[in-house]
Design a protein around this nucleic acid. Structure first.
Lengths: 341, 341
DNA sequence: TTGAAAGCGCTAACAG
DNA sequence: CTGTTAGCGCTTTCAA
């Protein structure tokens, strides 16, 4: 392992000053260099296999080309919720977009007790992308840090944060309407906590809107609320089973719950979609691999990741002023879990 | 957004020199400080809300506390294979372990055409964790860089790389033996390419070993080889269906293929496990959420991530010499897809 | 068109 | 026990 070679070595090799090397490497508009010098420098760079040391660069420029992504943890000191395919897909797409534009991605689970701003400052993060919901003051801290931030899928009211998200109310409406159009009249909904303003609440609103549009009364007992996970879906099957003679379809506001329900229903010998139709939400890959495959609403997670990256980079490079928001379009993807009645 | 405060400000506030501030902050063994000074400095740190600038620290120390994780991409310029739950789970666990020890994690898809070493040098990565298989010279480059590296689940022969992995041969043996003990005699195997030395080849070897132990001849046509994905599992169902009167079980060397098979078999009205038993491999969360839930071999991905982090950090902090290898234990997890015959 | 030199914020000899 | 100071590798102003 030889000594790390630096700009100085390149300068020596090329017979120019280090300043000159820096100029040609960065090729800033302002500088004029002779073709000959440029060539000599590049030759030296390649010969020596020079790679700039970003830490030094960051120090001098106060620009890190690093984007931090904050991913929620279920509990302090637990692994973050990467297992959730949503995050994986989102991150994957974000990273690719960022890398193509010359940025790297620093991931971090968000320990409730550790404030992320510290990480952000330490690492000179240029921008931050935030997934999940956090206490108000955490967000206030982030806002105060002055680091450009985009938050994903959040309904917090703020004039300062840029956002990318889904119109969940519309999505819920669309999903429900789809079922309605397939001839379903009695439709249950299985969802997560709707206490706080958030995606679940919005999706339920959309569900209600669609029903109203069809002049179907919203039955309270058709609304099942629990935690957004497989287990709850499995558990709620019992309720659904009890109502199996009235309802013909259920809209789950997350694919993972839909899969749980699918499994739970087998215990009651209820077939999907023959006896009951199930509609999911997310279109993560698990909806493809289930049997029957899930008809679901595609929230275009990849696009979300891409837009998040582009938005943050736009914020950084184009000095865009003013709040930006982007709503990713949704669409129904038809597979096998819904039938026409 | 006020001016970023630095060590100098803290020094002024505390009425000491910047060196002193550095000493108390880093609290190195060698330095002796008076209690009073320490306290004054900390007070100033808190008052000013000082956060050290790691870029400067890295520059001075040549130590970044950053671990790079290289994740394979399916194709150049495509998103990396994060969608694969294996990576998500692994990374999640690695990140948590690293963070607890004061390291951050930089993820990067590995663009075949971009050499990762450049990223590693640029960012002064302290260590590298590599997932997936890469061309020999990529690995040679990494080795030459002198950066401590651990590679995951690789059977490349090298006296230089540290590894964490699974004893896939033993795992394949164990899985097959489990089926044998359940009374299955004719067992097919569905696996990925076994051309190169790799996990699939090893798992198949284990399968053969188990069969031999039971003095059951290995039937060539029971070995189905394809790509490790859902689609292949679905596709291979046709072959399996043809053999449905001879075989009673099939061992899939990845859960995702098992799920594909599960789905494919429904077309032929073959029930699992009533007609055919299916055994998976991986125990990623998808094996839990399928219907029927998959009996599979748990390769303890979380532990793998944790060990990878610990190994790399050990390498960094304890100057451990010599190659290290760690084999993560495996175990069968019994669920619903295998029945006794 | 190029180069000298002053930082960027921090660490670690070395001196006191 | 504490402070002075010389770097770490790079950028950029200013001068030549």
């Amino acid at each position: 392992m030889m000594k790390r070679i630096g700009i100085k070595d390149v300068a020596k090799e090329a017979g120019v000053s280090i300043a000159t090397v820096s100029y040609v490497i960065n090729n800033k508009g302002g500088q004029s260099l002779s073709e000959e010098t440029k060539e000599r420098v590049w030759k030296a760079v390649n010969k020596l296999n020079y790679v700039p040391n970003l830490s030094a660069r960051i120090l001098a420029n106060n620009k890190s080309n690093l984007i931090g992504v904050v991913i929620p943890q279920t509990e302090t000191d637990k692994e973050f919720m990467f297992a959730n395919p949503f995050y994986a897909e989102f991150l994957s797409s974000l990273e690719l977009t960022a890398r193509k534009r010359g940025y790297h991605v620093l991931i971090s689970g968000a320990n409730a007790d550790e404030n992320y701003i510290e990480v952000a400052k330490k690492r000179n993060l240029d921008g931050i992308v935030i997934l999940g919901v956090y206490p108000k003051d955490t967000l206030a801290d982030i806002q105060n840090s002055g680091i450009p931030t985009v938050i994903i899928d959040s309904y917090i009211k703020s004039y300062h944060f840029n956002t990318v998200g889904t119109d969940d109310c519309y999505a819920g409406y669309t999903a429900t309407k789809y079922l309605l159009e397939k001839g379903h009249k009695k439709i249950a909904i299985v969802t997560g906590s709707t206490l706080e303003k958030g995606v679940n609440q919005e999706r339920v609103r959309g569900y209600q809107d669609a029903l109203s549009e069809y002049e179907i009364p919203v039955e309270k007992r058709y609304i099942c609320t629990g935690t957004v996970d497989f287990e709850y879906g499995e558990e709620v099957a019992e309720n659904i089973a009890k109502m199996k003679d009235e309802i013909t379809a259920v809209f789950c506001t997350a694919d993972i719950m839909a899969l749980g329900l699918l499994k739970g229903l087998t215990k009651f010998a209820i077939r999907v979609p023959e006896d009951i139709s199930i509609m999911g939400f997310d279109n993560t890959f698990i909806s493809k691999i289930s049997t029957p495959a899930l008809t679901t609403v595609n929230q275009n997670i990849s696009i979300k990741g891409e837009r998040a990256a582009k938005m943050i980079i736009g914020l950084l490079e184009e000095q865009l002023k003013g709040k930006q928001d982007y709503i990713v379009p949704i669409e129904i993807v038809e597979r096998e879990s819904v039938r026409e009645v």
